[in-house]
């Protein structure tokens, strides 16, 4: 049995999902030979630590750690002080300076701890630096959940499609935009109506600009370009147009001619724009779904789709990254 001591940093929507999933899947992971033990959780109020593993029942009902924290340590201080093997970083995304996640990841990697994250910010801002830091310290940085949520994309390209030359990836990487465009087309309603509907359902934030202006999608384009295409690009290298200018009339005209309008991110073209997609195309998924077409030399075009967000769904991608770290060393390593 391989014991893995895990520290979780960030205890919001995804953080709760991680605690839930690690608990629910503990037995299944043990059958695989992995004892995934959550020994600390940190949010910006403090930290709860338990060497024997945190009791999920005790904390899942708590929105923050205010009432259950056993230490006032926060962020980097907690990461440095707690002897874990792996840090799951799920604090809020900031794609301008990457903080607080960037500092957390640097502390973890420099301390010889693997990092698994759903936080795009640090990767958009400092991918190559973080990657080098991980290599220098002999640990791994995994971030499947940052691009496409639970939809397998990075591992699919890196592992399953290994040996293929990847010509490009195009897809829908933002469920909020996809929901709004889908509803506008279905109900023939203006953008503002579909947006407020999405806000009522909790699909869009009160300030939706990060999603609807295409910023989130562009962040994912940067991550995919850097991680899968070795492009070493910055956010400003992406040409971004969001969905706020799309009208129900445009959707109707497109539909009459057999097209949907979707916000498509394109690597290596480095564009994010509303795009006509043939209605029958496998990437023309509706609702909050994400999708991606991967263009390869040997396998032709591979298309995947799945939920791009959600507490448990995102935690699933994180769990899969955690397992893959130990798999590389045990099951499918090349000797």
């Amino acid at each position: 049995m391989r014991e893995v001591k895990i520290s979780l940093v960030g205890y919001g929507v995804v953080g709760h999902g991680v605690v839930d999933v690690l608990t629910r899947k503990r037995a299944m992971m043990k059958e695989l030979g992995l004892d995934l033990k959550l020994i600390s959780v940190t949010d910006h109020t403090g930290t709860i630590i338990s060497e024997d593993g945190i009791d999920a029942q005790k904390i899942l009902g708590e929105k923050t750690l205010t009432n259950v924290a056993t230490s006032s340590m926060k962020g980097k201080e907690a990461i440095d002080a707690i002897a874990s093997d792996l840090v799951i970083e799920v604090t809020p995304t900031n794609i301008v300076h990457g903080q607080p996640g960037l500092g957390h990841m640097e502390a973890a990697l420099a301390g010889g701890k693997h990092v698994v994250t759903s936080n795009k910010g640090p990767l958009v801002v400092a991918y190559s630096r973080l990657k080098k830091l991980a290599e220098d310290n002999g640990v791994m940085l995994k971030f499947e959940a940052t691009a496409g949520g639970t939809m397998p994309l990075i591992s699919l390209v890196e592992r399953t499609l290994v040996g293929n030359t990847i010509y490009g990836i195009r897809g829908i990487f933002n469920g909020t935009c996809n929901y709004i465009l889908t509803r506008m087309a279905e109900e023939n309603i203006p953008y503002t109506h579909a947006l407020s509907e999405a806000q009522d359902l909790g699909i869009a934030e009160a300030d939706p600009s990060y999603d609807v202006e295409g910023v989130d999608t562009a962040g994912k384009v940067v991550i995919l370009a850097n991680a899968l295409f070795d492009m070493n690009i910055k956010y400003s290298d992406v040409d971004v147009t969001g969905i706020t200018g799309v009208t129900p009339e445009a959707l109707a005209l497109a539909r009459e001619k057999g097209y949907a309008i979707k916000l498509i991110g394109d690597v290596p073209a480095l564009t994010v724009r509303p795009t006509l997609v043939p209605v029958g195309s496998p990437i023309a998924v509706g609702g909050t779904l994400n999708s991606a077409a991967i263009y390869t030399d040997l396998s032709g075009t591979i298309t995947v789709s799945g939920l791009g967000a959600g507490s448990i769904e995102t935690a699933s991608a994180i769990l899969s990254d955690v397992v893959s770290i130990y798999r590389t060393k045990r099951i499918d390593a090349i000797f």
Binding site: Y167, G168, T275, V277, P278
Partner: peptide
């Protein structure tokens, strides 16, 4: 004007 172009079937 917002110009909405079709997606290409193949990578460039």
């Amino acid at each position: 004007l917002l110009v909405i172009e079709p997606i290409e079937d193949e990578a460039a």
